[in-house]
Every structure is written in structure tokens, then in C-alpha cells.
Design a protein around this nucleic acid. Structure first.
Lengths: 353, 353
DNA sequence: ATTAGCACTCGAACAAAAAGAGTGCTAAAA
DNA sequence: TTTTAGCACTCTTTTTGTTCGAGTGCTAAT
């Protein structure tokens, strides 16, 4: 993306964004001239601002008000910021510290990190977990509960385990459970849904012999487990903080945003459409969900061994303290990334609760 | 609870509640005289209303406004309603129908029922799941993922399964996994946390021989799994619907309520303090959480074999369509109760990991 | 290219007045 | 004794008008 703004225009735009973000009120030429560029007169600033408005970077709420950044304006600001928003080393250290040793499960770590991000920035935070890919199950286990109930455990290639209760309309023996597990591991494990053909099933049934009906009950659950749609999960923290911001005192907007957060699909979509590993900043109408067209999402994916294992992010109004939020999300995501790659050592350290 | 109101006072109070609930505006004597009690003059109603106010059932927003029910007024109304709020058989049937066959896991059934309750009443719905009791694990299973990763499966007496990933700082063989499972089933299964004594552990370690370190990793996870506190879970549906109600355009109140919903502790407390199996209606300051003191919670526990396995409920402003909400929640909870007693043998749905 | 000066616009804040709804009280009626 | 009509009173809501001030755009001078 190329922006050809003169240095001075860029400086003014930046000043407008920062001032408006802080104060929440449209900023006028006088203010800029006095506080930011003392060697220019208000009139000069006015001219420049008029230009910036014509170029689409600024907007005017009404004729006699100051200027406010447009979404493009924010976009420019954010793009300019890229690279220089990082937290200091000390702060990063501190965050890592507050995260460390708290939890051992990825879920919990993500939740804690997002909680932290939320409370540090005073915006609403989300923790995202991609949906477990159960497309290919590499191993089955069957546990005997009682004569009419078994528990089926499915292990995916990524290490995610899923359990399913099998309620049977007939009695079985513990040996049947083992037999079932065996059969599943022999014929079904390692295949995707499409690869499970009729001949394969017939072989498996033959293997089960008289207990073929048990197999069919299990297969039903396996199918539903593998098919199960519904994407990842989002944990939200601090929705109430949205209400701190005047932009959401508009009931309609707030309602839309709450809906979007609850719906989660739009957010997941947006995140999954993000390219690259870098911090993503999705401003206003850049969001895929219409209901989020007045909000900004700052999010960073967390990778482990090259695979995305989650993300943490912040949701707030477009008028957002970008520098702080970006730095915080970035640093926390970084911390989490480091934590989960050094987890081996953690397991050895004494448990603290 | 005894209320000694004359029949007429009761009738007026009831009329005020219903009118106010519907219209959202204070109701005056004239309205009642014309639409509800045509054989009384406004003056008579006024006198009665003054009495009702003195008794604490009604309130006046300001001198020259109509009357509004106090929380006590709502309480009276709800208590009077008890018994006559039920949905018709046909409606109940319909709801059961919409629930049936959708899902097989208790979690999902509860979520679906609450979702339904929310959309039928246009309030915010919650689905509550008590925490899985992992106090006693009756069976273990260990799955081999790779040489440094195992998956531990724990099965509780109630049929809930929980999985845990074991990351190892050393290499193991598939036979070690089986060995570990064996040892756990022999020495640990069937015991509560307190019953696992040092001698027991030593026996187990001896059994594991050279792979005792594997046991200690597993035990750490088992402990954390069994100890894991944090009460039930609440799934919320339709927070955005809160915004339909003018009482929550007060930012402070809305904020408090959102906080309370997110916090969930207050709600869980309130629910667990409810006595009996009947429909619970918690009005305003009856709520344990201060943040809910302007809201009403209508909730019904769902039991299975005498054990509470969940609850569904509705949250809204005190000015709520009690008859409809109570009937809906009651009927849906009833439906769920019936469903799980005919379709599910095992109490808990599996916990995915 | 910049700046000073000025007329102009438009919202915010305030005040005063008018409208309307509902009450409480008193005295008459049932 | 209970009910009702009548009336003065209170308090909110809405309307209308006015002022104030911030900030702009434009023009002419620097």
C-alpha cells in the first residue's frame, strides 16, 4: 500500500489521530497549530486539513466542527506505526512473568493471556481456539463403563482427543470393548471420512463378527464427531468494558457488536482470512461482519511448530489507542508463543497453584 | 408467605403489573378504571392505589406519574401466578418436538433448550452445567501419540470422560503407555484424592519400575484434573436482547449486569441457593449479586435420578413478562428432563479436549 | 507558499413557556 | 361507611427561542 502524503500532511494526520483518540472530540486547526506544529499558523493547518479531507483521510462531523480521522485515516496511522509499536523489553518480560506458571493447558494459557490483554488495555478481549481437526482420526480407544455404556476416545493427528459416550440398546462385555477398539484401529484409523468405503466397512463388520451392531453404533458417533462443524471457540472477556466508550452508547451499534461477538462466526472468518503471521488490525468496514463495521479488531495468531494453535485479540471502537493495543497484543501473543514452545521444561518445574 | 390483600387490591395490583409490563409506562388510575374495572371510578382506584403504595407493593416514580410495581409487587404477582402459568399441552409438545433429536449430548441439549427459551421470550438465556465431578476416577486409559506425547483419559463414576495431554521430557514406548494405564487402574482407580496415600503411591511406583518418572508426570495431571475447581459453566445466549429493554439503556445498570453475566459466580451462587425443584424466580435485590439487583432471573434446575445435572434460565429486567417466561422455562426444563431420562443413560456428556 | 482577518455555519447549552397526565383532597352522593 | 365528582396542584415532557463559541472557508495581504 502506497500513501503519497507530504511529510507535513502525514504529521498532521498523525496528530489528529492521536489527539482524537485521546480526547474523543473532533480536533481543530488551532489545537494542532498550538500544540503540535508551533511554526505553522492555524490557517495553514486548515488548508492542509481540507486537503486531507479531500483525500479521504479526515472527516467532518458537521460544518463547524473539527476533523475526525476516517477509517482510511486510521489505516494510514496504523500502517505508519508498524514497526515502532513494540513494547519495551522490560514490559514484555513483565507480561511473560504474569503469565508464567499459571496454567499448563493451552486453552487456559490463551484465556489468561487474553484476559490480561483486556485488563491492560481496557478493551474487550478474545481468545480464539481453532477447531480441532477431527478429519482424520489416528487412534481409537474404547473404555468399558457398564454393560450398556461405553466411552469412545478418538485421537486426531494433531493430538486433540475427543470422547463420546456410546449408549447401547443391548449388553456387551468388557472384551467387546477391546474388540471394537481393535477393529476401529485396524480398519478406520488413519482414514478420512471419504476414504471409508463400503468394502472397508464390510471388512470391519466381518472382523466384528456377531458384534457388528456394536460397530454400527460406534460408527454413527464417529461420523458425527468427524463431521461436526462449527469452527473454533472464542472466549470473551470484559464485554462490559465496551460501555466505557461513548461510541457504543448508541444502542444499535452496541447491539450489533454484541451480536457479532456472540455469533463469533464473523470474527472467526475475519481472523482466518488474515494473511501472514503478523499482528492483524482490522478497522471498521474492513471487518467481514457488518455488525462490526464500527469496531476494530486487533489480533495475532499464535503458532506452534508452524501450525496455528490459537489467537488472542482485542475488540474496541475504531477510535482506539492503537499503539498501546497493538503493542500489548503483540507482546502477549509473543509470550504465549514462547511459553508453549518451552513447555517441556515447565512440566518439570514444581507445580504452583 | 402470606399476603392479606383484599380481593380488589389484589386485582388492581395484578392489573398494574400486567399493564406496566406490557406498556413500560407507569399506569394511572384512569386506565385501570376504564380498561380493567369498569364499575369503579378512577377516584376509588386512586384510593386503593395509595393503600397499595403504603403497603409497599407499588411505587411512584414522581408525584404526578402513575404507579409502578415495586419488587414486592412483582413478588406478589409471581406468587399468585404460581400454578396457573403452565403452557398448554400442545405448546409443550411443540417445544419438545423442536428439541428432540437435535442433539445427544447433555451439553448440547441444554444449550439448545436455553437458546430456544431465549428466542421464544426475547430475553437473554443461560444454560448451566454443574461442574463434572472428577472426585473419583473409576478408570484410566493411556493412548500413545508419539514418543514424547501421551494422552491420558480419565473416566468418572458418573460417566464423564476427561482427557489430558501428557508432554514428556523423555522418550517412551507404546508398551510404557499400556503399562502406565495398567498401574493407574490397579492402584489409583476408584480412589478419591484423599485416599491416595504415600504407601499406595510407593506401591504404584514400584510397579512401574524404571518408568516411575512417567507415573509422576501422569499423577501431576491427575491431581490437577481432580482438583480442578471453578464450578459450573454457563452458556449465554442473546445478550444483545438486553438492549431491547429501556431499563438497560442506563449504562451503569447494563454494565453491571454484563459483568455479572460474565462473572457467572453470582448467578451460580444464586441458583445453587435455590431450594426445591420448582421454578425459581429471583427478582431484583433478591439476587445475591449486587450487579443483578435490577434484573430478574427465572431458572429451573434439571434433575436426573435425583441429581441436578443442569439448569436453564432467563435473565431480564424486573419488568418482565413473567407469565410467558415462567411457562416457557418450566416447559422447556420439563422437556429436557424427560428427554434425558429416556434417551441418555449416562449423566454427563464427554468433555472434548 | 503562508498568514491574518472576517463573515458564516452549526451545534451545544440554557431558559422560559406551554402542554399534559395524574395525583390528593374535600365535599357531596349512594 | 363507601364511592365518586370536582378541582387545585405538582411534576415531567416538549417546544421554542436565544445566546455562545468553536471552527471553518475564503479573500486579500505578506
Amino acid at each position: 500500500m502506497e500513501y503519497d502524503l507530504t511529510k507535513r500532511k502525514a504529521q498532521i494526520l498523525r496528530a489528529v489521530v492521536e489527539t482524537y483518540v485521546k480526547g474523543g472530540e473532533p480536533v481543530g486547526s488551532k489545537y494542532i497549530a498550538q500544540n503540535v506544529m508551533p511554526n505553522c499558523s492555524p490557517a495553514t493547518i486548515r488548508n492542509e486539513m481540507a486537503d486531507l479531507e479531500a483525500l479521504g483521510y479526515l472527516e467532518q462531523p458537521h460544518t463547524s466542527a473539527g476533523r475526525v480521522p476516517s477509517e482510511l485515516g486510521y489505516r494510514f496511522y496504523v500502517d505508519c506505526l508498524a514497526g515502532e509499536y513494540k513494547k519495551t523489553k522490560a514490559e514484555t518480560e513483565l507480561m511473560s512473568e504474569r503469565l508464567r506458571g499459571k496454567q499448563h493447558e493451552l486453552d487456559k494459557i490463551l484465556a489468561e493471556a487474553s484476559r490480561l490483554a483486556g485488563s491492560m488495555t481496557n478493551y474487550t478481549a478474545i481468545a480464539v481456539r481453532p477447531r480441532a481437526d477431527m478429519t482424520k482420526i489416528i487412534r481409537f480407544e474404547v473404555m468399558y463403563f457398564d454393560s450398556r455404556n461405553l466411552v469412545l476416545v478418538m485421537l486426531s493427528g494433531s493430538g486433540a482427543a475427543k470422547t463420546r459416550n456410546l449408549r447401547l440398546p443391548f449388553d456387551v462385555l468388557p472384551t467387546d470393548a477391546a474388540h471394537l477398539a481393535n477393529t476401529l484401529n485396524t480398519f478406520i484409523a488413519g482414514h478420512t471420512l471419504e476414504e471409508i468405503t463400503l468394502p472397508l466397512m464390510m471388512q470391519a463388520e466381518e472382523e466384528m463378527g456377531s458384534e457388528a451392531r456394536l460397530l454400527s453404533v460406534a460408527m454413527k458417533e464417529i461420523y458425527s464427531g468427524m463431521e461436526e462443524q462449527g469452527g473454533g471457540e472464542i472466549k470473551v472477556d470484559g464485554v462490559d468494558r465496551l460501555l466505557s466508550y461513548p461510541e457504543f452508547s448508541d444502542v444499535g451499534k452496541l447491539r450489533g457488536l454484541l451480536g457479532a461477538i456472540e455469533n463469533k462466526d464473523g470474527i472467526l472468518d475475519t481472523i482466518s482470512h488474515l494473511e501472514g503471521d503478523e499482528l492483524g488490525v482490522v478497522i471498521g468496514k474492513e471487518n467481514l461482519s457488518d455488525n462490526m463495521s464500527d469496531s476494530t479488531l486487533v489480533v495475532k495468531k499464535i503458532k506452534k511448530d508452524g501450525k496455528v494453535v490459537g489467537a488472542i485479540g482485542i475488540i474496541g471502537p475504531c477510535r482506539m489507542d492503537y499503539a498501546n493495543v497493538m503493542a500489548t497484543v503483540d507482546a502477549l501473543a509473543e509470550s504465549v508463543g514462547k511459553m508453549i514452545s518451552t513447555e517441556l521444561r515447565m512440566l518439570e518445574s514444581p507445580k504452583d497453584k
